[in-house]
């Protein structure tokens, strides 16, 4: 009869069975809402983002928030120790989390985080990459795809020039970064499926 909400945006994976479904969801939303707000604040600072229509800003943020959070919180996944730190500060081993029912997504998150951290990006590079991630989110429902594509192109060009300048002998880094975009989309899809399957009664 145990219930777990295995998401590091949560204080802890343990769900108090004495709480109602609404209370459980409410508590979880207190954890992730500040993180979502941070993503929005970050988006507002991306040059050109505020020039998109309000509808397209919301659409991109709805589609891309999870992907941005995966990048921003990649360091919660400690590949060396095989632990995940939850927002409450506690660390949980992979084995413990697997016993709570997490499977493919957990492995995929570790794999993604390890590869991203191995690139050793600076704060500025990571920030620009995160901006690219957001404007590369799923395009369905956008009013003006051309504007979003133009913004994406500008940001990708800026990222390439920054990476080339900072790592003149490592031309593969830029390509590796771009290849992270489809990886993030896959993680997003798996996460969405799990979210839909999660029901609090």
């Amino acid at each position: 009869n145990r219930l777990y909400l295995v998401c590091p945006m949560n204080i802890s994976p343990h769900v108090n069975l004495h709480k109602t479904g609404h209370e459980v969801w409410e508590e979880f939303s207190h954890c992730f809402t500040p993180a979502v707000r941070e993503v929005v604040e970050f988006a507002k600072k991306i040059p050109g983002f505020r020039d998109l229509s309000q509808h397209d800003q919301v659409s991109l943020l709805k589609a891309g928030t999870f992907e941005v959070l995966v990048v921003r919180f990649a360091s919660l996944f400690n590949v060396k120790d095989r632990t995940v730190t939850f927002l409450g500060g506690n660390k949980y081993s992979v084995e413990t989390l697997k016993a709570m029912g997490s499977g493919y997504l957990l492995n995929a998150m570790f794999d993604f985080s390890e590869k991203l951290m191995n690139l050793g990006l600076s704060e500025e590079e990571m920030s620009l990459f995160t901006a690219v991630v957001l404007v590369s989110a799923d395009r369905s429902g956008l009013e003006n795809v051309n504007s979003v594509e133009a913004l994406q192109e500008t940001l990708i060009r800026a990222l390439r020039s920054l990476i080339t300048r900072n790592h003149p002998n490592e031309s593969a880094i830029f390509t590796k970064l771009l290849l992270k975009l489809p990886d993030l989309r896959s993680l997003n899809n798996v996460h969405s499926e799990q979210l839909l399957a999660f029901k609090v009664h």
Binding site: S29, F32, R37, V40, K44, V58, K62, T65
Partner: peptide, 27 residues
């Protein structure tokens, strides 16, 4: 819910944050 973003109330949070809702900020 058929949309995970709706499930999380994501659109509402995003809209309020985009508009810079004063009440939300005070929270």
């Amino acid at each position: 819910f058929s949309d995970p973003a709706s499930n999380l109330g994501l659109e509402d949070i995003i809209r309020k944050a985009l508009m810079g809702n004063l009440e939300e900020r005070q929270d």
